[in-house]
Design a protein around this nucleic acid. Structure first.
Lengths: 147, 147
DNA sequence: CCTTCGGCCCTAATAAAATTAGGTGTTTTC
DNA sequence: GAAAACACCTAATTTTATTAGGGCCGAAGG
């Protein structure tokens, strides 16, 4: 899928996407235009979906994170999904197998805020909540090797 | 925490962190050096933790994602954590309240691969697995407003 | 077997972007 | 009320990215 050079480029960009072409070129032993072209193709192929920044929840005052399993009551699936989408405290949300339920991350400043948010879903879904104690792996990309 | 200008800058960068200072400056009605300085301070304050790329699991052949709850058997907590960290198919992993258990994302190419990975943990932890059917919110930052 | 085409790379020149330097007005502090 | 701190500006400089133009295989086809 990716050759060794592409993999190295992506790995460097995962660590710091502002790395200059010059530095990337040095790291992989190519010229800047070559790296630029590889980058363009990685994006074109959809391997690199985009360039972004990582924002720190704690620095913004969201000291607590929770993982919430949300099982909408019969007929409430779309209402619940809409609510999740429109509530900014929800981070990523996955719809998973088993009773059509959602697993979502929640960013809150206090237990009270968490409680308040869960209350607002209480009449639309069954929920179970786990507070995040630590993040052994805060974020990690899928493997870049096909091995 | 963040003024309106900072918020706008961060929002733009979340969408595309390669946006030039010139464009950012135009968007917020400041000069490039001013935006540059604000950026520096956002990083210094830890609001922006880093610049990175988003890599697409599907494009790399990982068609399946699963959310796995992993409850280590007595005395196996550290072994399990190490295994998770060293298995590249694991994406982000949170340690949550309730019986010292982990919630992790898993990227695999097939159900067989998923099964194989779960087998390797089977003697160290109790697991329950939910396959991701869709991602209503693939990724989202915490709210930028204190509201 | 030779030619052609496509892929991938290069250097050098140009264009665009980021940074730095130096200065102005406004607000906070002593 | 002066001084310092702050947040911003423009203009000059430096760094970075992009473009243009060619060379070198290696595979495909005559």
């Amino acid at each position: 899928m990716l050759d060794e050079t592409d993999r190295e480029i992506v790995e460097i960009l995962l660590r710091d996407s502002r790395t200059s072409l010059k530095e990337l070129a040095q790291a992989v032993g190519l010229s800047s235009p070559s790296v630029s072209e590889r980058l363009r193709r990685l994006e074109e192929r959809g391997v690199i979906r985009g360039f972004t920044v990582e924002v720190d929840a704690k620095a913004l005052g969201f000291a607590i994170q929770a993982i919430v399993r949300i099982k909408p009551l019969p007929g409430k699936l779309h209402v619940v999904q809409k609510l999740i989408e429109e509530t900014p405290q929800f981070g990523e949300c996955d719809k998973v197998t088993g009773d059509d339920c959602f697993v979502a991350r929640l960013y809150v400043r206090s237990i009270e805020e968490l409680d308040g948010l869960l209350d607002r879903i209480a009449d639309k879904a069954e929920t179970s909540t786990a507070i995040v104690k630590s993040q052994p792996i805060p974020r990690r990309a899928p493997p870049l090797q096909s091995s």
